[in-house]
């Protein structure tokens, strides 16, 4: 879906203005491209830019992040992933957008959380669970226990 909205304007940009030097072109993400990425990030509570898909990650780092999200039981309807390998413009654009040199990149509620090292670190320290609970992406542990108690 992202490919839909991003491909045309991004491609138009890279071929773009002959006056700009190539180094300037590389550094400046067009406001249009930026807006498309922003829309993608805002469209779902949790957004992951990754290599491959959740079912078939094509990089160990992307796989690790998917596994951690899976472990926390992030429901599919609260999460959206974009395969940067299918979209070279997104692959470069997202690095500049986030000012982060590598993929995967995790966003929660439109906020950049980090890449694989940070997500794994937050998972180990418990911060990730807190964050996901705070934004109601996963149910709070005590609420879940209460729900179980009342239903039994």
């Amino acid at each position: 879906m992202f490919r839909h909205i991003s491909r045309l304007p991004l491609a138009a940009l890279t071929r773009g203005s002959p006056r700009a030097t190539s180094s300037v072109l590389r550094r400046l993400l067009s406001s249009e491209a930026r807006a498309h990425i922003q829309n993608a990030i805002d469209a779902s509570p949790l957004v992951l830019f990754m290599k491959g898909t959740p079912d078939l990650p094509q990089c160990g780092f992307s796989r690790a992040v998917i596994q951690v999200l899976d472990l926390h039981g992030v429901p599919p309807e609260k999460m959206r992933t974009y395969n940067v390998l299918e979209d070279p413009e997104l692959r470069n654009g997202i690095k500049e957008f986030s000012e982060w040199p590598t993929v995967p990149q995790l966003y929660v509620k439109s906020e950049f959380i980090g890449g694989c090292d940070i997500v794994l670190g937050m998972h180990q320290s418990g911060e990730l669970e807190d964050l996901l609970e705070k934004h109601s992406i996963i149910p709070k542990a005590d609420e879940e226990a209460a729900a179980r108690a009342t239903s039994s």
């Binding site: 950049f112 980090g114 890449g115 937050m122």
Partner: peptide
């Protein structure tokens, strides 16, 4: 924060 540290190293 870890994010800020990593950004610094990046």
């Amino acid at each position: 924060t870890t994010l800020a540290r990593h950004r610094m190293v990046n």
